[in-house]
């Protein structure tokens, strides 16, 4: 074997092992989340008590308990593998970022993993207090005056946690603390994609803060893409 062949073989081994590591052989689940019926009307928020926030919004923002897109798309739905995938043994190194800006939580729904660092920043000129209301995790309630460093926290159990700011009662958000990295939050079109799933039988769950959750069973055999759609029933009140 010449040097050239040896080089090629080496590269091939590298490529194959890299491929095995990344699991490109895995399948993908993608789909769309929609609603049927009439969702609750989202009301404009009067922030007049906090002028420094109010003036950041040319038109008042509305409540965000049901955020919809075109074609009945439903946003802010957390789609995740609730059973069938192993729990991640180590949390991702990069922090999940949650920002308070204009007296609003960005993003409204933040999904991250168990033991992953959650980094909360205050971009406003006013104090906020971040008060997540967990049932199984440890509860805390911290104020963040303007100009103070970001708050770092972690959760060690999976849970959907409502988050509120007591100082600005309209500010509500959600943390989705999940066991593995296979999750997505539906965006503008209501669409989501869960790539790189090794073959296996999965329970895939979609969770919405107002409409609860739904699950479906999906089996991935190879590198195919399977489509799963969720339809939530919307109520006007």
């Amino acid at each position: 074997m010449g040097i050239k062949q040896g080089f090629v073989a080496g590269v091939a081994v590298l490529v194959v092992s890299a491929a095995l590591y990344a699991g490109p052989s895995g399948g993908t689940i993608s789909g769309k989340v929609t609603y049927e019926g009439t969702p609750a009307k989202q009301k404009p928020i009067d922030m007049s008590k906090e002028p420094s926030c109010a003036q950041q919004h040319a038109t008042p923002i509305t409540t965000e308990t049901v955020v919809t897109g075109p074609n009945n798309a439903l946003e802010n739905v957390v789609v995740y593998i609730s059973a069938g995938a192993p729990d991640d043994s180590t949390a991702p190194g990069q922090p999940a970022k949650f920002t308070q800006k204009g007296c609003q939580y960005l993003p409204h729904v933040l999904a991250f993993e168990v033991n992953q660092t959650l980094e909360i920043a205050n971009d406003d000129q006013t104090s906020h207090n971040i008060h997540p209301l967990p049932k199984v995790n440890r509860e805390w309630n911290k104020s963040q005056p303007p100009g103070t460093p970001p708050i770092s926290e972690k959760y060690d159990k999976p849970e959907f946690i409502p988050v509120k700011c007591n100082i600005h009662p309209w500010m509500h958000g959600n943390f989705a603390v999940l066991k593995n990295s296979h999750y997505a939050v539906s965006q503008g079109e209501g669409s989501f994609t869960l790539p790189n799933l090794p073959p296996g039988k999965y329970t895939i769950t979609a969770w919405h803060e107002s409409y609860g959750d739904q699950s479906q069973e999906v089996t991935i055999t190879g590198s195919e893409t399977k489509t799963v759609n969720f339809v939530f029933k919307a109520k006007p009140y």
């Binding site: 104020s143 005056p145 460093p149 100082i167």
Partner: peptide, 9 residues
């Protein structure tokens, strides 16, 4: 935090 007194403190 960082030496800045919070409202509750």
């Amino acid at each position: 935090p960082g030496g800045v007194i919070t409202p509750e403190y």
